[in-house]
Amino acid sequence: MTLGRLIIYTRKMDEMAEFYATHFGYQIRRDPADRITELAPQAGGAALLLHPAGKAQKMGQVLVKLVFDVADVPARRAALMAAGIEVGPLLDGGGYAFANLKDPSGNSVQISARAFRSPG
């Protein structure tokens, strides 16, 4: 059994789809008969499903953080910042680099080299 999909509730469907497609390599898949927009990963990993948020749902709660494995965090951070995205400082996780940011709906996102760190 593997984790195949994550649902993200949002009021910014188009902006969110473009954000993850442009900056994290997802392919946007829309079906006119379905209100969910599927974002398919191009390099493996879980798909993201964008679901229209209900009126009572609060955007940007920090109960879950999406973490993207990136071998060169400083380079990816620089590219995101060059694209106008606010990214926090480059941090040391004890042998690997990471940085935090928010998506257009205020959800927590991290780029991290943890998956590429040396054992020990």
Rank of each mutant, 00 (worst) to 15 (best):
M1F: 10
T2P: 13
L3F: 08
L3P: 02
G4A: 14
R5I: 14
R5T: 14
R5L: 11
L6T: 13
I7Y: 14
I7C: 14
Y9K: 12
Y9E: 12
T10E: 07
T10A: 00
T10Y: 02
R11P: 05
K12I: 09
K12T: 12
M13S: 05
M13C: 03
M13D: 01
A17D: 02
F19T: 03
F19G: 04
A21T: 08
A21Y: 04
T22Y: 09
H23A: 07
H23G: 08
H23Y: 04
H23D: 06
F24Q: 02
G25V: 09
G25M: 10
Y26N: 04
Y26Q: 09
I28K: 07
R29L: 15
R30V: 05
D31I: 02
A33R: 15
D34N: 09
D34S: 10
D34I: 13
R35N: 14
I36R: 10
T37V: 09
E38W: 13
L39Y: 02
A43V: 10
G44Y: 02
A46H: 01
A46L: 04
A46T: 08
A47D: 07
H51N: 09
H51P: 08
A53T: 05
G54I: 07
G54S: 11
K55S: 14
K55V: 15
K55F: 13
A56S: 12
K58G: 11
M59D: 11
G60R: 00
Q61S: 15
L63W: 14
L63S: 15
L63P: 11
V64C: 06
K65C: 15
K65W: 08
L66F: 03
F68L: 05
D72M: 02
D72C: 03
D72K: 00
V73I: 05
R77Y: 01
R77C: 03
R77M: 04
A79G: 03
A79F: 00
L80D: 03
M81D: 06
M81R: 08
A82C: 03
A82Q: 04
A83C: 00
G84S: 04
I85S: 06
I85H: 01
E86N: 13
E86P: 10
V87W: 00
L90F: 00
L90Q: 02
G93K: 01
G94H: 05
G94A: 06
F98W: 07
A99M: 03
A99H: 00
N100H: 11
N100I: 11
K102V: 13
K102R: 13
K102H: 10
D103Q: 02
D103H: 00
D103S: 03
S105K: 08
V109I: 08
Q110V: 12
Q110K: 09
S112Q: 03
A113F: 02
R114Q: 15
R114M: 15
R114T: 10
F116Q: 08
R117L: 07
S118K: 14
S118R: 15
S118Y: 13
